[in-house]
């Protein structure tokens, strides 16, 4: 039997992101940043999928998804 590890991560819909930076301010791990004024980008190594950014995002373009670790 293989153990499948699933982790929760924030995923940004980049095409709809307005790059306002609200998510950056609430991330407790500084795992999300605005790249060159275009979109937010999640550092998947650091993100633990707590969902604070998704809750804060005024455009609601961040989703918490289960991904294979």
């Amino acid at each position: 039997m293989t153990l499948e590890k699933k982790r929760r991560k924030a995923v940004v819909d980049r095409s709809a992101c307005v790059a306002c930076g609200c998510c950056v301010k609430v991330c407790p791990l500084q795992a999300i940043q605005i790249v060159r004024g275009i979109t937010a980008q999640v550092d998947t190594e650091t993100c633990v999928g707590c969902g604070r950014c998704a809750k804060e995002c005024p455009a609601s373009v961040i989703e918490i998804r289960e991904v294979e670790a």
Binding site: V18, A19, C20, C22, G37, I38, P58, A59
Partner: peptide, 15 residues
């Protein structure tokens, strides 16, 4: 922030 004209404009400039 989603529809702020300044935000939209600065994002376009960055793009």
């Amino acid at each position: 922030c989603v529809y702020c004209p300044m935000g939209t404009m600065t994002q376009l400039i960055c793009k």
